[in-house]
Amino acid sequence: MSTLNIINKSPFEKRTLDQCLSRISKDDAVILIEDAVVVAMSGTSYDSQLKTATADKKLYVLTPDLEARGLADRSLLDGLTAVDYKGFVALVTEHDRVHSWL
């Protein structure tokens, strides 16, 4: 049983990502969409926390939202996988449930 967790707020503004990571298990996945994509590149203050998370959990980022924010050409954090809309849909179908952390 696994959950796909969707995060859409910038972790620099809201603590949603931390709140999510502190409660999910290793079978779960997280996808960063909308404003949450701002921590997807390497070199932010979230680096080490996200690296720890990617050690045992799957982390994804939605490419169209990176592109929209001018961040598509930056190098992504190691262990983070970029997906397009089709990939996002596939992730939804691969998991037992979706938890959208509004």
């Binding site: 959950t3 409660r23 999910i24 938890h99």
Partner: peptide, 15 residues
């Protein structure tokens, strides 16, 4: 244990 609780659900709605 929050994760175990969520794992038992069919639908998760977060507010």
């Amino acid at each position: 244990r929050v994760n175990e609780l969520i794992d038992q659900q069919d639908v998760v709605l977060s507010f």
